[in-house]
């Protein structure tokens, strides 16, 4: 049994968090809600997502695993208004039937056995900041015209984003207590990331969202945020670029 109903924007936010990482994912559903863990094919970025069953208007699910093509799903609810109710259920042919006001779609499932179980690396990151995604987005936009990677450098009282190539350079300085709140700080750290990957992840985070950014020294970054009216919880991990010396 798999029969759920939620606002279009709820589904949209879930799928938008996933699509930067993978086009197809394996969804584990049970009474408590949905759990999705996916890694991109190159194993550079990962998402670990949970959506509480209370995020749905109707939630009738027995424990199961489904393979979904989230890109198609996202596409299929594109036309719906944000508050429009969308139901998704399995039919006898093992297709996902998506219905909204006057539209019904049937989409075949993906074989869930084809997915490997991604392992979440245990990371002990010395820095944890709280900030609005808009602050990062600003730096991201500008650096895109400069280089294809971005460096975070964090000291006790500021976070500096830099991007440089040849003679061009960008520096964006964020101050503690102004643009971000410091939650944890052990030691100064510096890591670089692929702009391509990072901007994809930021698209998944969305504009104007409160996030926690964990950083380390030449170590992966971790983005933690809630979505879907705080009923959804997501973690992104992104592996750094290691400068060859």
């Amino acid at each position: 049994m798999f029969n759920v109903e939620a606002k279009a924007e709820t589904f949209r936010s879930v799928f938008s968090v996933l699509t930067p990482i993978a086009g197809e994912i394996k969804l584990a559903a049970d009474d408590n809600g949905w759990k999705i863990r996916a890694v991109d094919p190159a194993h550079v970025a990962m998402v670990d997502l949970e959506l509480e069953s209370s995020a749905f208007e109707k939630y009738d699910v027995e424990p199961m695993e489904l393979g979904l093509n989230v890109e198609r799903l996202l596409e299929s609810i594109k036309s719906a208004r944000g508050d429009e109710l969308v139901t998704m259920k399995l039919d006898d042919d093992n297709r996902l039937v998506i219905s909204m006001s006057n539209l019904t779609l049937k989409i075949p499932l993906v074989d869930p056995s084809g997915f490997s179980e991604p392992k979440v690396p245990s990371l002990n990151l010395p820095i944890n900041l709280k900030l609005n995604s808009a602050e990062l987005q600003k730096g991201l936009k500008i650096s895109a015209s400069i280089s294809d990677y971005l460096t975070f450098e964090c000291s006790e009282d500021k976070l500096i984003m830099t991007s440089s190539e040849d003679l061009s350079m960008m520096t964006l300085e964020l101050k503690k207590g102004q643009e971000y709140e410091l939650v944890e700080f052990e030691k100064p750290s510096k890591s670089s990331f692929s702009l391509d990957y990072f901007s994809h992840l930021m698209k998944g985070v969305g504009a104007n969202r409160d996030i926690q950014l964990h950083l380390g020294n030449s170590y992966p970054l971790k983005l933690v945020f809630d979505f879907a009216e705080e009923k959804g919880h997501a973690i992104y991990l992104l592996a750094p670029r290691i400068e060859s010396s």
């Binding site: 094919p41 084809g114 490997s116 991990l237 670029r241």
Partner: peptide, 22 residues
């Protein structure tokens, strides 16, 4: 062999993988 192994062009030089950190 492994379906999750990246295609060679997907990772640029200098890019690490998450697996390098566990």
């Amino acid at each position: 062999l492994e379906e999750d192994e990246p295609g060679e062009e997907e990772v640029g030089t200098g890019q690490s993988r998450l697996g390098d950190f566990s």
